[in-house]
Write a protein that binds this DNA or RNA. Sequence first.
RNA 1: GCCCACGUAGCUCAGUCGGUAGAGCACUUUCUUGGUAAGAAAGGGGUCAUCAGUUCAAGUCUGAUCGUGGGCUCCA
Length: 592
Amino acid sequence: MDAEYRESQLYRIRHSAAHLMAAAVLEMFPEGKVAIGPPIEDGFYYDFDLPRPLTMDDLEKIEARMRELIAEHHDFIYQEIDPDEARKLFADQPYKLELIADILERGTDEYGERTAQPVLSIYKSGPFVDLCRGPHVANSKEINPKAVKLLSVAGAYWRGDADRPMLQRIYGTAWPTPKELRAYLKWREEVQKRDHRKLIKQLDLLSFHEEAGPGLAYWHPKGAMMRKIIEDFWRERHLEGGYDFVVTPHLGKAWLWQTSGHLDFYRESMYSPMDVDGQEYFIKPMNCPFHILIYKTRLRSYRELPLRWAELGTVYRYEKSGVLHGLLRVRGFTQDDAHIFCTPDQIEDEILRVLRFSISILNAFGFEDIQAYLSTRPEKAVGEPERWEQAQASLQRAIEAEGIAYEVDEGGGAFYGPKIDLKIKDALGRSWQLSTIQFDFNLPERFDMSYIAEDGAEHRPYMVHRALLGSLERFFGILVEHYAGAFPVWLAPEQARLIPIADRHVAYARQVEDQLRQAHIRVYTDASSSRMNAKIRDAQMQKIPYMLVIGDQEVEANTVAVRLRSGKRLGALSPADFIAHVAQAVAQRALE
RNA sequence: GCCCACGUAGCUCAGUCGGUAGAGCACUUUCUUGGUAAGAAAGGGGUCAUCAGUUCAAGUCUGAUCGUGGGCUCCA
C-alpha cells in the first residue's frame, strides 16, 4: 500500500466506512466485540467477535444501516485521551484493551506498526467510538452512500495469529462515486469470468479428481497439447540460452533430504516417507539435491564452469488442505527449474544473463509489464557475508542494467541466499510472481561441492536456483486468466476448426484437414449433424482462433471461408494461403 | 490446519412443510443438409459426495468423513 494512497481522501472514505460498518454491526449485536478495521487496497474490512456467524442477509441489513448512518451526517471527531480514560472507555472491549496495552508498551499503533510517540487517540462518529489513529473524513457526508458496498464475510485470526481466536471479518468496498463502484464491481465480475477453474473445465483443458487426491492436476488432450507447446518453446529457448538438460528421479532416500536440510526445515511440507527395503524414501519437493549429485559425479574444473542445468522437474509438496486453489496452489507440479554453478567472477555475468533470459521468455507469453523485487540478507543466515555482498550487488546491478522497476525487501531473503523475484501484471492489472532467481550458500556447503580453480585448489562454487515460469501448472492457470481462454494462435490447442455446411462437404473438409495437418496446423473437422450456425457457436465458445467454413462455393473453388473468433471474416483463402496466414500469426505470436 | 458456506444427471442449476427426484445444455436415434453465435422430435442417463444417526418415512433434520468455495494462517 503506497504512501500516496494513505494520504488520499479515498483512504479516509474507506476508513470511515469501516467505522460506520462497525457501528451498524454493534447495533445489531450490542454484546459484540470489535477488533480492527483498516482500509485495504480496493476497500476496507473490520473484524468482529460475534455471538453467531453472519449471513448474507445480515450483510444486507448492515449495509442498509450504514447508508442511513452516512445520511445522518455524523462528524468524525478526533480526540487524544490518556491511558486510564482509554481503559475505562473500552472496558468491555478486550481486543481494544490489548491494543491499548500494545500501543503503550511497545510503541506500536493498532496495526502493529511502530510510531514515534505512543499516542492514544479515538474517533467519535455518532454513537460509535473507536480507538483509532485515523485519518478520517470530517463528516460522513463526504461518503457517497451509493458508492459503498459490503462484499463478503470470512474468518480471520485475531492479529493474524493461528493460535488466537478466529474472528469474523466483513469485507467492503467504497469509492468516491457510484460510477467508480460500478466499474470496480464490473472488474470483479470480469475476474470471476476469467477464473481459470471455470475455464479449464469449459475448454476441456484440465481436471482434478477428489477420489484420486486433491491438488493433483490431470491434463486433458487440449491442456496437454498446450503444455507440450510451452515445453517445446521452453526447451528451444534454453538450448539457445546455453543450458544443458538433466533428468532426475522422483524420489530419494532420507539421506538426501537429511543432507540437504529439508527434513529439518521443511518436513511438514513433504509427503510422508515410504518404506522400501527398510529404508525411508521421500518423494521430492525440490530438484536441487539431485542436480548436485550429478555435479559431484566427478571433479569439476573452473574451465568447465559455468554449468547451467535445466529440468522440467515434477515435485510434490504437502500443502495444507485449506490453501489449495485450482492450478495456482497445488500439491504436485512441474517446476521449470535450473541450477547454475559458477565461479565468483562469473556471477555478475550469469545473473544478468539469467535475468535477460527470464524477461525475454515472459515477454513471449504476452507479459510485458514486469517488476522486480530484490530480497536481501535476513538476520539469521548462512554463508560468508562477503558472498552475500557480492551476490546482492550482482543482483542489483543486473536489475539496473535491464532498467526494470524494482523494490528492495531488506532482510527479506531466505536464510540461504538473496534473490530476485519477477512479477508480471496480467490483462486485468493483477500482479503474479513468476520468476525467481536465488542464490544458495547452504546446499554447496552441505553437499561439500567444489571445483578446482586456477590455483589448483578446491573452491566452493556459487549456486543459483532459478525458475522462470515457476510451475507449469500455476503458470498455465495464470495464462488462462490472462487470455480469458482465448489464447494466441501459437498456444491455442485447436487453432482451426473446419465447418462443413452439409454432409456432402465433409469429404473435402477432410482433405483440407489433412493438408493443414501436414503443415502442422492443429485442426479438427466438425462432422456433426448440427447446422453451420451451431457449429460456429460451438467453435466460438471453445475460443478457437480460426473457423473455416466450407460449402459448395469453397469446394468448387478449392478454398476455405475464414472467420476469426472476433467475428471478423477474412473471406475465401486457398489452403496454401491460409497456411501462410497461420504461419505468420504463429511467428508473431499474434492473438488474432 | 482454522472459521464460515456449499456438494442433486457429463455441465449449469431447481427441488416448498420430511412423503421414494426435475429443467436446460450435452449425449444417442430419427427427421432436417443449412452460408457465419443454438433447426425439430423421441430416448437413455441419478446409491441426491460418503458413512452413521433421528423418524413409519431423509435429497430435505443431526453428527462424522471426504471434497469444493470465500478468507485467515502457512508457502525454509
